[in-house]
Design a protein around this nucleic acid. Structure first.
Lengths: 198, 198
DNA sequence: ACAATCATACCGACCGGTCGGTATGATATA
DNA sequence: TATATCATACCGACCGGTCGGTATGATTGT
């Protein structure tokens, strides 16, 4: 096999092992050695491909958010009706809880880190502000076309994000088998009642 | 001075130092030795009063939640109108962000722990389910007296909690000087528009 | 004397990260 | 094509340091 192929394969197996261990045990509780063992790779290999332990998380986060970004763009393009676009956020949350469920706990860990570490903040929080701006723009569109009340778009977007984040956190911590996608959908409809033009 | 008085004083100074350090640096980043240094106390004293490092956090959490409980009871008693009672949640969030602001980041840290550690879960998450039940009861009251639409009270309560949690998280992570109490108040009014009987 | 309260010294595990060295594929030269 | 040279990928022992926790003795009020 070519040298480069082998290299990327190694790096990929490290990333995969790290992703799994982070999800199951959390970030702090996972040591670099454990990642190496799980990946069947030496510590030297690890530090050949990654500068620090934190850098591997940041790379994982980047990939993860990229997927979210694409979903948002998809919604943006396929959305004619503004209200419908806002409602579709419920689907996203359901998908996020389904697909990325096991890895979501790391977010809590890194949100708390983001408060003190600017590098972590850039990688984990800043993207969410982009999402907020996205929704704010969508809301502005709704106001312009007269389907939404004339509310401050940014604040309203904050409310939407708050709803999403709060639902995610509850979904993580509540052990019961609630269907959070349904609940979120319901909540969005309630909110829309308040936001929609009369 | 009496021996017991001195003992409680020591314990209190340990708690105070821990609370401060946890707030500033986070839980994991704060070592037992640091707490002892800050409290002007030896490690022996620490482990005389607390079984483990985690136990000191649990005690702090208990006290903290007790304060929240009292506020809720206060609202419950002084509330004649259901809608008004729900709106007052906005004030609570504002107060929480004001008073307990510096210590809130620890919540993120322990929510992520709560997912794996049942003891932490009991101390940090279970209380919030009581709050949810509280709001569910309030909503039920509103439905009974006809001021609210006939929606599933538990799910609606979840939405309220989600809003609160989401606002708190954003308040922690957004560096800008937004007035989250105002925004929350606005959000609650929007939601009430959707919930209120027509 | 005796128990509660605290100080000191210390333990063993583990952590993120480094470093000297090697194995192996890529590349240039003849 | 054969060989010398070099760069990349990887190994695994090891380091300084920190951590939560313990064992034991001194002090002090009762």
């Amino acid at each position: 096999m070519k040298q480069q192929d082998r290299a990327t394969q190694t790096k990929e197996s490290i990333l995969k092992a790290a992703e799994h261990l982070f999800a199951v045990q959390g970030y702090e509780a996972t040591s670099v050695s454990m990642i190496c063992d799980a990946a069947g790779v030496s510590k030297g290999a690890f530090y050949h491909h990654f500068e620090t332990k934190q850098s591997i998380f940041l790379e994982l986060m980047q990939r993860w958010l990229k997927g979210l970004d694409e979903q948002l763009v998809l919604i943006d393009e396929s959305t004619e009706d503004v209200k419908e676009g806002l409602l579709s956020m419920g689907e996203i949350i359901g998908q996020v809880l389904d697909v990325g469920g096991p890895q979501l706990p790391i977010f809590l860990e890194f949100w708390s880190r983001a408060i003190r570490d600017p590098e972590v903040w850039d990688a984990t929080v800043e993207p969410f502000q982009r999402y907020r701006d996205f929704f704010a723009a969508l809301i502005q569109r709704g106001i312009d076309e007269g389907s939404l009340r004339d509310l401050a778009p940014h604040n309203t977007a904050r409310v939407l994000i708050a709803l999403a984040v709060g639902m995610l956190v509850q979904g993580l911590l509540d052990t019961g088998g609630e269907d959070w996608q349904d609940i979120t959908q319901e909540a969005l409809e309630l909110l829309l009642h308040g936001i929609a033009a009369r």
